[in-house]
């Protein structure tokens, strides 16, 4: 099954970088949707079937924490797998997000870390069971 992914970040360039990491991950990725803040992200969730959301924290209009609260409070989306991709380093804030069932990837991140967090949270595996070369060994750089 291919995962339909929603990427929510107020930085267009960061969304492109995350999408590139997803496309290179070797995981079965289907449609990728984008949103520039939590409010836009919730609108996408109302209109499209999404299997995984990657959400930044610090965003205008509606931040990532508020968006996650809305998602968990909605019967239709309460079990959606969520990974927070953020510069956040406060232990207490990360613990609060993890209590909401969200995975966490710290920026700047290594694409392999993102892939492993997705596999851990969703249970999906690589398309053909092999690691893509780009993700093997020490050749990959942090993003």
């Amino acid at each position: 099954m291919a995962l339909n992914v929603l990427v929510v970040d107020d930085s267009a360039v960061m969304r492109k970088m995350i999408i590139r990491s997803l496309q290179l991950s070797g995981l079965p990725i289907g449609r990728i949707s984008e949103a520039g803040n939590g409010r836009e992200g919730l609108e996408v969730l109302e209109q499209e079937w999404i299997d995984l959301a990657l959400i930044d924290i610090n965003m205008p209009v509606m931040n990532g924490e508020e968006m996650i609260e809305e998602i968990r409070g909605n019967e239709q989306t309460k079990d959606l797998p969520i990974i927070v991709v953020s510069t956040e380093s406060s232990e207490s804030r990360i613990e609060m997000l993890q209590k909401q069932g969200a995975g966490f990837v710290h920026k700047p991140f290594n694409p392999a870390t993102l892939r492993e967090t997705i596999m851990e949270l969703t249970g999906v595996t690589h398309d053909d069971g092999k690691m893509p070369e780009e993700f093997d060994g020490g050749g990959s750089s942090d993003f």
Partner: peptide
């Protein structure tokens, strides 16, 4: 453990 809020 401190929480900071960053603007865009």
């Amino acid at each position: 453990r401190d929480i900071f809020h960053l603007t865009s």
